[in-house]
Computed example of a mutant assay.
Amino acid sequence: MKKIIRVAALGGAVALALAACGSAPEASEPTAGGSDKAASDFKACIVSDAGGFDDKSFNQLSYEGTKEATEALGAGFAEVQSDSEADFAPNLESLVAESCNTIVSVGFALSAATVEQANANPDIDFILVDDAADNDFDGQKDAENIKPLLYDTAQAAFLAGYLSAGYSAGNGVNKVGTFGGQPYPTVTIFMDGFKQGVEYYNKVNGASVQVIGYQGGDQGSFTGGFDANDTAKQVAAGIIDQGVDVILPVGGPIYQSAMDAIADSGREVALIGADADVFETDPSTQDLVLTSILKNMKLSTNEAVTAAGEGKFDAETYVGTLENEGVGIAPLHNFESKVDAGLLTEVEDLKQQIIDGDVTVTSYLAK
């Protein structure tokens, strides 16, 4: 599988396309600026999962955070984009060979390859986005020089579920839906939180809004992957055909398949984005997006890389929450006038109740 490797000296961009899989990127000098130590010694690098850096989701956000950090530091930078799982190990090896001081691996799919390289290269700081680096599930990291960046998106999804339930009840539909790529914890944490939010709305308001497409755990509608394809469209259509007026796809670009299914249905169905504010990252969604469930990967990745560049790398696990603004929901944008103001106030109050511990949201990351 062909891969693209780009290496940039920030401020004077240099792009190289290498056709041979596993080939190392060529070195480049960092730009002037930032601290002398960072400019002369530090180099941060990033490897994507198969979604690529233009996925309008977690790869893109992590990339932007890493790049902004290196620009501010005046440091060296290299990026490697993966086309498939087979690229993960050789891509990481190429960045080790590139003398990167810090390597950001984006996505749980890179966990095993990142752990292997971290153990083989204890002098390199690794930042692993969306995974705990615990591949044997014993509750401990498998390499001491990895900083996991995790996000308790169940908290934000709870708000989106409550909002969606209120919106659907206000329309007299009382049905919302969700589906995912594969039943990994980083996917189902969205769906669990969404379902809990709907159930809490029902409890508080004496309502009976149904969640279509997800029963809990690994029981629900999944596409089997994270590609926007006919399978994802069929899964979305199966949920839409059951009468929902809100749908949450969880799995990178599969939201695009949901949009196609909405268009084919001829019905008014609102879309909930995941990871990024898709209203901003993908303008084609703007007539459909009620809100998005946010993981602030751009900020957390930036902060982790900056700390490493300043010689303050901390391998402690980061967990994004509503309280530390690591997760949240996006503005309603074009839907603000379509949602009852009282419902928006309830959602805002609910956010503070979750932060204060008055309302409990369960997830595998909740302490």
Rank of each mutant, 00 (worst) to 15 (best):
residue 2 K to D: 03
residue 5 I to F: 11
residue 11 G to V: 00
residue 13 A to E: 15
residue 14 V to K: 12
residue 17 A to L: 12
residue 20 A to R: 14
residue 21 C to Y: 08
residue 26 E to C: 00
residue 26 E to V: 11
residue 27 A to T: 14
residue 30 P to R: 14
residue 32 A to L: 15
residue 35 S to E: 09
residue 36 D to Q: 15
residue 37 K to A: 15
residue 38 A to N: 07
residue 43 K to E: 10
residue 48 S to I: 01
residue 51 G to N: 06
residue 58 F to Q: 04
residue 62 S to G: 15
residue 62 S to E: 03
residue 66 T to V: 03
residue 67 K to M: 12
residue 68 E to T: 03
residue 72 A to C: 00
residue 74 G to F: 10
residue 75 A to F: 05
residue 76 G to Y: 05
residue 77 F to C: 00
residue 77 F to R: 05
residue 79 E to K: 13
residue 80 V to F: 09
residue 86 A to V: 09
residue 91 N to C: 06
residue 94 S to K: 06
residue 95 L to P: 06
residue 97 A to H: 00
residue 97 A to V: 00
residue 98 E to P: 00
residue 101 N to T: 07
residue 114 T to P: 00
residue 119 N to H: 13
residue 122 P to C: 06
residue 124 I to W: 13
residue 126 F to V: 02
residue 132 A to W: 02
residue 139 G to K: 11
residue 145 N to L: 04
residue 148 P to G: 01
residue 150 L to E: 07
residue 152 D to E: 14
residue 166 G to V: 09
residue 167 Y to E: 11
residue 170 G to V: 08
residue 170 G to N: 13
residue 174 N to H: 13
residue 174 N to M: 05
residue 175 K to A: 14
residue 175 K to H: 09
residue 175 K to R: 14
residue 176 V to Y: 11
residue 180 G to E: 06
residue 181 G to V: 01
residue 182 Q to M: 15
residue 183 P to Q: 06
residue 183 P to N: 11
residue 185 P to M: 02
residue 193 G to F: 11
residue 193 G to S: 14
residue 200 Y to I: 01
residue 200 Y to V: 04
residue 201 Y to C: 07
residue 202 N to V: 00
residue 203 K to M: 08
residue 204 V to G: 03
residue 205 N to Y: 09
residue 205 N to K: 15
residue 212 I to H: 12
residue 214 Y to C: 02
residue 215 Q to T: 06
residue 215 Q to E: 15
residue 217 G to A: 15
residue 220 G to T: 01
residue 221 S to D: 13
residue 224 G to R: 03
residue 226 F to W: 08
residue 226 F to N: 02
residue 236 A to Q: 11
residue 237 A to Q: 15
residue 239 I to A: 00
residue 242 Q to H: 00
residue 243 G to I: 05
residue 244 V to P: 03
residue 247 I to Y: 04
residue 250 V to L: 08
residue 253 P to F: 05
residue 256 Q to A: 10
residue 261 A to C: 00
residue 263 A to K: 15
residue 264 D to R: 04
residue 271 L to T: 02
residue 275 D to F: 10
residue 278 V to M: 08
residue 279 F to S: 11
residue 280 E to H: 06
residue 284 S to W: 01
residue 289 V to F: 06
residue 290 L to K: 05
residue 292 S to K: 00
residue 298 K to Q: 14
residue 302 N to S: 12
residue 303 E to W: 01
residue 306 T to K: 14
residue 307 A to R: 01
residue 315 A to M: 05
residue 315 A to Y: 03
residue 319 V to H: 08
residue 322 L to M: 12
residue 324 N to S: 13
residue 327 V to A: 07
residue 330 A to E: 12
residue 338 K to H: 07
residue 341 A to F: 08
residue 350 L to V: 02
residue 352 Q to I: 10
residue 352 Q to L: 12
residue 354 I to E: 08
residue 355 I to L: 06
residue 356 D to P: 04
residue 357 G to V: 10
residue 357 G to Y: 09
residue 364 Y to Q: 06
residue 367 K to M: 05
